[in-house]
């Protein structure tokens, strides 16, 4: 359970990092729980949040396995998804990543599966969308993991080679899902209770891609019912023409400029293990906040 909470927390931190310069800055995720965020609008952001939460749990469980904190993973029989042949002295052991994947699947998806909706209804579509995005999140962890091999045959030759999954940093997983967010596909639920492309000119989303049902609400103005905090008071970048630029972030409302002096550590040199040699710089900068 601790691992799941860790995973959810990590997902939240990652979400804030990924969206620090966007209109929506992960505000709905503050009430994030282990079942994924509770949001009413099946938007692109919800898709991202679900995928990231699923990825966070998968990642944290796999990591806890490697830490030795979780006794249920690895090769013991308890809690393993399928009966393993332990008698073959660990030959039947699965990968930790696979365990994390299975665990997250059983843990997160159950919320969507336990409720029954009328086929083709909006709610059923929402459940299907969540399931799809959860899967995409779990797969992102696997996709970002690297396979590493070691030769240990006769005289150290590669006549015998063993490979394992190497867990990547969660930042890479976050980046990957953010890219998927940017390329998410809009779908709708059809009468047979299946997800279908809204615009058939787009290519079909794979299991790794995110899908959403409705357009995002306007995150420019504060509206708690749709989970938007608005961009008022957010710091923006005057010179940027990107999403973090004042023009886009403030939704054309303009911005206030404030001159401040900032004391910060700069030109840091890191030395293993514990020394960070930094200079203290005093900068006077202009701070822009949205109106």
């Amino acid at each position: 359970m601790l691992a799941v909470a860790n995973g959810a927390h990590q997902a939240l931190l990652e979400c804030r990092h990924q969206f620090q310069h966007r209109r929506w800055n992960c505000s709905i995720l503050d009430e994030l729980n282990v079942f994924g965020p509770v949001t009413s609008i099946p938007s692109r952001e919800t898709a991202f949040a679900h995928a990231l939460a699923a990825a966070g749990v998968t990642y944290a469980v796999s990591r806890a396995c490697r830490d030795g904190h979780l006794s249920s993973c690895g090769c013991s029989r308890m809690g393993r998804p399928k009966t393993l042949r332990k008698d073959w002295i660990w030959g039947g052991c699965g990968d930790n990543l696979e365990y994390g994947y299975k665990f997250a699947q059983g843990f997160i998806d159950v919320r969507e599966r336990e409720r029954k909706f009328k086929r083709g209804s909006r709610k059923q579509g929402h459940a299907l969308m969540n399931l799809h995005n959860n899967e995409a999140g779990r797969r992102a962890v696997i996709k970002m993991s690297r396979v590493t091999c070691k030769c240990h045959g006769v005289s150290g030759s590669c006549s015998l080679i063993t490979c394992w999954q190497q867990l990547s940093n969660f930042r890479e997983v976050g980046d990957f899902i953010r890219d998927k967010y940017d390329g998410a596909t809009e779908v709708r639920v059809n009468k047979r209770g299946r997800l279908q492309l809204r615009d058939s000119r787009f290519r079909l989303p794979t299991a790794n891609d995110l899908v959403y049902l409705e357009e995002s609400p306007n995150y420019c103005i504060r509206n708690y019912t749709v989970g938007s905090l608005g961009t008022e008071g957010r710091i923006c970048n005057r010179t940027s023409i990107d999403l973090d630029g004042c023009n886009l972030l403030c939704c054309g409302r303009g911005y206030n400029t404030m001159k401040t002096t900032l004391k910060e550590r700069c030109q840091c040199k890191f030395k293993w293990c514990c020394e960070v040699e930094c200079k203290t710089c005093i900068k006077s900068i202009e701070l822009h906040t949205c109106k």
């Binding site: 660990w90 052991c93 394992w164």
Partner: peptide, 9 residues
């Protein structure tokens, strides 16, 4: 037989 070698991280 299971695979010749196994690993743990």
């Amino acid at each position: 037989a299971p695979s010749p070698a196994g690993s743990q991280s």
